[in-house]
Amino acid sequence: MSHEKSYTTEEIAKLLRISKLTVYDLIKKGELPAYRVGRQMRVDESDLEAYKTRAKGGYRAAAQPVAYTLPVPGQAQPTTGRNVIISGQDVSLDLLSSHLEKSDAALRPLRSYQGSLNSLVAMYTGKADIVSTHLFDGETMDYNVPYVRRLLSGHRFVVVNMLARWAGFYVQPGNPKQLLSWTDLSKSGVRMVNREKGSGARTLIEEQFRLASITGRDVNGYEREENSHLAVAGVVARKEADVGVGIEKAARMVGVEFVPLIKERYDLVILKTEENGALLKTVMDILHSAAFSKELEAVGGYDLSQTGKIMYETW
């Protein structure tokens, strides 16, 4: 029986001459099918060739983010230990998953790559154990807590800070359209690219538009959606749009200019249940550890001044 060749994410990055983070982004968006073997993600050769064929033809798969590491329905799962589903899209969550796995052999971290709102809904329905959120509320000018309180009504939970990071505009080098504020997006001749509904970036856009009395009809390109910061920055880099909204790190990766607008708080949410007692303690220990901080600092672009601080807690 023949066995198809497969590649690790590191090998894919070298073959395609792209960064490992870009490989993960392709996997998250469903453009590059992958699966987990132990602690490694792998891609079959046939799926890699199919992706390269689509890329050469200019075709980009319009897929929603897929959680490839989640258990397959109906498939037998190991009977020992506990699956812990971590939902969110930032690479810091992959680092958290790795530390969880090392800290407690009884925990099996599984990654789900959903936006902030969809992650909270998954937690409410019992389909996520740790979720990340960066949701701006224009009424309170605060992050996350107003949304968590509404969506997890009736649950006991804790909101703890993971990190902070700058969000802003991706623009062409030199910012030729002089896009410096939210109202500038409604200028004549400006094309934007949007994020998908349910993401933290989309919530930021909607809230800032509301505060500035802008509607989607006022902005050219408002209906075009992408499923990640890298994808939005890529659209701007290819000059298919003049502006997009996302985090600073993606701008550096694809070579577009970044206009910082707001420092967003990136928090974790965990339900306070009897089952989660040990999990919560382990997560807090990781967030306060020097090893975890060092890894986050190595990624770059993060403010770790409040990492591990409890921002809100129910009793």
Rank of each mutant, 00 (worst) to 15 (best):
Lys102Leu: 10
Ser199Thr: 13
Arg54Glu: 01
Tyr222Asn: 00
Pro109Trp: 13
Gln178Ala: 12
Asp267Phe: 02
Val160Lys: 05
Glu196Trp: 07
Ile27Asp: 13
Gly200Cys: 02
Met311Arg: 08
Arg17Trp: 04
Gly244Ala: 07
Ser87Ala: 15
Asn118Phe: 07
Gly38Thr: 01
Gln64Trp: 04
Lys309His: 14
Trp182Lys: 05
Pro176Gln: 07
Val37Ala: 07
Ala251Tyr: 02
Arg39Met: 05
Ser293Asp: 09
Asp90Ile: 02
Pro65Asn: 06
Ser92Tyr: 08
Arg36Pro: 04
Ala278Lys: 15
Lys28Glu: 15
Val23Asp: 11
Ala201Tyr: 01
Arg265Leu: 10
Pro109Ile: 12
Glu264Tyr: 00
Pro78Tyr: 02
Pro176Cys: 06
Ser228Gln: 03
Tyr68Cys: 07
Arg60Asp: 11
Ser116Gln: 12
Gly308Trp: 14
Thr79Ala: 14
Arg202Thr: 00
Arg156Glu: 13
Leu96Cys: 11
Arg108Tyr: 08
Ile27Gly: 05
Lys249Gly: 01
Ile12Val: 12
Ser188Leu: 03
Asp47Gly: 06
Ile130Tyr: 03
Ile310Cys: 09
Ala122Asp: 13
Trp315Ile: 09
Gln64Lys: 10
Ser97Val: 02
Val259Tyr: 01
Asn118His: 04
Arg54His: 02
Leu204His: 00
Gly255Cys: 06
Thr8Lys: 11
Val283Phe: 04
Lys20Tyr: 12
Met1Asn: 07
Ser213Ala: 05
Pro78Asp: 08
Ala62Leu: 11
Ala13Trp: 05
Gly308Asn: 14
Ile205Tyr: 03
Ala212Ile: 00
Asn175Gln: 04
Leu16Trp: 02
His155Gly: 01
Val232Trp: 00
Asp137His: 02
Pro65Lys: 09
Ser181Thr: 13
Leu261Ala: 00
Leu280Asp: 03
Phe292Ile: 06
Leu271His: 06
Leu110Cys: 07
Thr307Leu: 05
Gly126Ser: 10
Tyr59Val: 08
Asp218Gly: 08
Gln75Met: 04
Val243Ile: 11
Phe157Tyr: 15
Ile18Lys: 09
Gly308Pro: 12
Arg36Asn: 05
Ala290Met: 13
Leu48Val: 12
Ile286Cys: 11
Thr125Trp: 06
Pro71Ala: 12
Arg156Phe: 06
Asn83Pro: 09
Ser92His: 08
Val66Phe: 11
Asp90Arg: 05
Met141Gln: 12
Leu32Asp: 05
Val121Ile: 06
Arg210Met: 08
Asn83Asp: 15
Thr22Arg: 15
Ser103Met: 12
Asn276Gly: 13
Leu151Lys: 08
Met253Gly: 04
Ile86Asn: 02
Ala291Lys: 15
Glu206Pro: 05
Leu100Ser: 07
Asn220Ile: 06
Ala62Trp: 02
Ile86Cys: 11
Lys20Phe: 14
Val245Trp: 10
Val269Ser: 14
Leu163Glu: 13
Arg252Ile: 03
Glu313Pro: 03
Leu93Lys: 04
Arg82Phe: 05
Asp94Tyr: 14
Ala164Pro: 01
Glu49Thr: 07
Arg150Met: 10
Leu204Glu: 00
Tyr59Met: 06
Glu297Thr: 14
Pro33Ala: 05
Arg36His: 10
Ile310Leu: 12
Arg210Gly: 01
Gly88Phe: 10
